[in-house]
Amino acid sequence: MTVLAPRTVDELERILADSPDHTILSGGTDLMVEVNLHGRRPTAIVSLRSVEELHAWTFDHERVTIGAAVPYATMEVGELAGLVPALAQAARTVGSPQIRAAGTLGGNLGTCSPAGDGLPVLSALEATVHIRGNGDRRDVPFADFMVGVKRNALRAGEFVHSVSIPRVDGWQGYAKVGTRNAMVIANASTCLVRDRSAGRVRVALGAVGPTILRCPEAESWLAANSDLRGNTPPSADVRAEFSRLVSQASRPIDDHRSTAEYRRHAVGVLARRLLERSYQ
């Protein structure tokens, strides 16, 4: 039998240490597309289905920790959605309900597509990726985890155990543009977090660069030019300049889904609208 189904994280770690070429299977929504359509022929598979620890999520007053194998459907509604609303909003846009019942944040991180819907949220919330493998544990900030188009910081024998997301005093939201009203890959997406205690916003952009992009210039400029702690929204001029700076931070390309020009425009609009929403 070449599909292994470990029950514990230790067991999983041992399997991958012995055979780092085993393919990790979580929800299957990326891997099986590769197998069905793109000629990928795994010879041995480790399924995360029975590793209960990876299917759990916890929280305390500082952070929410989500196991790598928790499906998006769990993030969309209920308590977890209340704790990380931007993630809930992003989860709701992932593929179809069927995909959300299977697909996981661990899979999003494993694949590391710039259009991965969960990733801008992890970026803007400055999440930490907890990695296991080779008898070791590493905590990698999301910013250092995604290193390129479909490339991440995982080494042979390693796997994503969980992601922890700091709880923020403030507002968070996610918006995504596609050319239909459901089940669509992002042409551009934006997550905005307004951290009231820090008096800052954090903005992360999806599908407009080789990795998820943060917008440090736009973030700093806005912090310097408006009151992000209070309830008074920035002026229209300030919002417009913020929008322009966000667009400027994007590095989109033309492809069959959209154009660079549109994507650049869209993230600016989304960031401005999210900022406005954060005051509603």
Partner: peptide
């Protein structure tokens, strides 16, 4: 939100 253009992507508010 599902009745607005953009649907579950939550791109728009009513006044847009």
């Amino acid at each position: 939100v599902l009745d607005l253009p953009g649907g579950s992507g939550r791109t728009a508010d009513r006044h847009h």
